[in-house]
């Protein structure tokens, strides 16, 4: 299937997993997001690319409110997470997030990293949490590392464990913030393979990345951001092969 343009005026977005409307974000006087309209359909994989400082990570971090938007609205499966009365913790439990620096909890074993939020947030019984954690670890190929501490994992293993930690919460969607940027080149493939499997299973994913190959192969939609605005978006194969805007062309000529 090919992605349709996401900006049809008046399109019915009620089925969208993530719907961002006229989002502005200032850091002090610096406006890093200048009116973003963005949406991810259910089951879609949307990749966001752009030069550093373009605001792509900030956009992703606004989706689960790790950054508080200055203005604008964000809906997660129809519920407004930017609503001051929204139960942000509850919504976050449904949104998995993977960080560039993994952010595994260093004082817990890999298994405990995967079970703690299941128990403390979702209220699952210990046995059930462990069972789910083991199944998830098996999925990312880390079964034999369950009692290791994060310090003893390689970068690629750490990131796969971090993905497993997010997945063990049985999220409805996953956010990836440059998941392979901190990895040695030879370890990137393992992580991307896990992400591809996830996409093939129909997981809704928003991926900020520099991996153009991944975007071309897996992405339903590609968004190019620069200077706090969305410059161009569309089918990744089309955008990557034939970018329409000068800024997109310039960026792609540097990274491809």
């Amino acid at each position: 299937m090919t992605a349709e343009t996401t900006h049809r005026a008046g399109a019915d977005r009620s089925g969208a997993a993530i719907d961002v409307q006229d989002l502005h974000k200032y850091f002090g006087d610096n406006e890093v997001l200048k009116g973003i309209d963005f949406h991810v359909g259910n089951g879609q994989v949307v990749c966001v690319i752009g030069p550093s400082g373009s605001g792509k990570s900030t956009l992703l971090r606004c989706v689960n409110m790790l950054e508080t938007p200055t203005s604008g609205k964000i809906f997660v499966e129809g519920e407004e997470i930017t609503d001051p009365d929204a139960d942000v913790d509850k919504l976050r439990a449904r949104i998995g997030m993977v960080f560039q620096q993994f952010n595994l909890f260093p004082h817990m074993t890999v298994l405990r990293n995967l079970t703690i939020a299941q128990e403390k947030v979702k209220g699952r019984k210990k046995d059930e949490a462990v069972e789910i954690a083991r199944a998830t670890l098996a999925k990312v190929g880390l079964s034999e590392k369950e009692s290791a501490y994060p310090a003893h994992l390689s970068g690629g293993q750490s990131q796969r464990a971090a993905i497993a930690r997010a997945l063990s919460m049985s999220p409805d969607m996953m956010l990836f913030d440059e998941p392979t940027s901190a990895l040695d080149p030879e370890l990137v493939g393992d992580v991307l393979a896990v992400m591809k499997d996830l996409a093939a299973e129909g997981m809704t994913m928003m991926v900020v990345t520099h991996e153009m190959g991944f975007a071309r192969e897996v992405g339903d939609n590609l968004v190019f951001m620069d200077g706090g605005v969305i410059v161009e978006e569309g089918d990744p194969r089309v955008v990557l092969a034939d970018p329409q805007h000068e800024r997109t062309q310039l960026f792609l000529s540097k990274v491809l």
Binding site: L66, D89, F99, Q101, N103, A117, K120, R165, A166
Partner: peptide, 24 residues
């Protein structure tokens, strides 16, 4: 990033403090 990771999993600020930040 430790607090952020804990919050992203749905933990409240207090829970994240108790389980993740204070032990470290």
């Amino acid at each position: 990033g430790q607090m952020e990771a804990a919050r992203s999993l749905g933990m409240s600020h207090g829970r994240a403090m108790i389980s993740v930040v204070v032990p470290q």
